[in-house]
């Protein structure tokens, strides 16, 4: 019961955050100088002031901002994100929907990679504090923190794609002969294309998470109950993985939730470098065309994903920490 109440509270708490995000983005975007019209109008000698005015009216840009925002919100409530300003005038949701799966796939894969690699790495580094292993991982972490991910992407493309010719460097699948491939070959083809993007978008997280795991583990290993567990004569493996790691993972869950915006934000860069037709690329072209509805739609989708990620983190937290599940923490 307590868990359901907790969950409802969290979900309700997300609502104002969500509207805050839409409000800020809407106003920031519209208050900035320049408007979609100028791109179409400035280079068109036949454009008269009246025509420009008519275009503005057609897109609803002649109304005061708060009217535009409330109109946009009304649409959102009906799950309608409006239509793109681009000449095709397609529905924003359709544009996003066809690109969303790729972006989510890459982000989920890199999240899994991050967890699978950084947690064991961090634990090992903490258990053997100051050992050679610890020092080497620390150096690697520092380097990974400081390296611009898009540059690492370039280097990997240079090595794997051009120098050794091992992996494809752009797109999601081969352009030639893709249709003739069997299912298995298609999967292999996709995986080959995804290796570099997934790895590159995971780099920052790999560094951050192994660092956090390490320091969190070090903190826990100093606690009395670990000494107790050891004194009981439990095997070291059990002490580390059952007693220590469980507690060390708690703060990590929150960090996991907080790292989602950065991970998704990175998509813009990786999708641009690796020519992957995902949401990031859509966002990019919308920015270039000053396509307000697509920009807003993108922001909405991305912030929903982020908030969902945070919610999942909260649930995960509750699942492992009974104090939160039973609401004990709020009584203190």
């Amino acid at each position: 019961m307590g868990f359901i109440v907790f969950l409802l509270k969290r979900i309700l708490g997300l609502v104002p955050t969500f509207f805050g995000i839409t409000l800020i983005s809407f106003f920031v975007m519209h208050l900035a100088p320049g408007e979609p019209m100028s791109l179409q109008a400035d280079f068109n000698p036949k454009m008269t002031p009246e025509m420009r005015q008519r275009l503005r009216a057609q897109y609803g840009l002649d109304k005061p901002l708060y009217v535009q925002y409330s109109r946009w919100l009304k649409g959102l409530v009906h799950l309608d994100l409006g239509r793109s300003f681009s000449p095709d005038r397609r529905k924003v949701w359709d544009k996003i929907r066809e690109r969303l799966p790729v972006t989510i796939l890459i982000n989920v894969l890199s999240m899994l990679l991050i967890l699978a690699v950084s947690i064991p790495l961090g634990v090992r580094a903490a258990v053997r504090e100051n050992s050679l292993f610890d020092q080497v991982t620390t150096v690697l972490v520092f380097l990974a923190y400081a390296a611009p991910a898009f540059w690492v992407a370039l280097l990997l493309m240079l090595l794997f794609g051009i120098e050794w010719n091992l992996l494809p460097v752009s797109g999601l699948h081969s352009l030639m002969g893709y249709d003739q491939m069997g299912l298995f070959e298609k999967v292999v083809d996709w995986s080959k294309h995804l290796v570099l993007p997934v790895f590159v978008s995971a780099i920052g997280g790999l560094a951050g998470f192994s660092r956090y795991t390490r320091s969190s583990m070090l903190e826990v290993l100093r606690q009395d109950y670990i000494t107790t567990a050891r004194a009981k004569g439990l095997p070291e493996r059990v002490v580390i993985y059952r007693h220590a790691l469980r507690n060390a993972l708690l703060p990590l869950i929150t960090i996991l939730g907080l790292s989602i915006p950065g991970l998704i934000g990175g998509s813009v860069i990786f999708e641009s470098i690796f020519a992957i037709p995902g949401v990031g690329q859509l966002m990019w072209s919308a920015v270039m065309a000053r396509d307000y509805p697509v920009l807003m739609g993108n922001l909405v989708i991305v912030s929903i994903l982020t908030l969902l990620g945070n919610l999942l983190a909260d649930i995960g937290y509750a699942a492992v920490d009974p104090r939160i599940r039973t609401g004990l923490q709020e009584q203190e």
């Binding site: 920031v28 900035a32 934000g265 813009v268």
Partner: peptide
């Protein structure tokens, strides 16, 4: 909660 790069891009554009 903001994927800030999206906001930065939107503003800069």
């Amino acid at each position: 909660c903001f994927p800030t790069i999206f906001l930065i891009m939107a503003v800069i554009a």
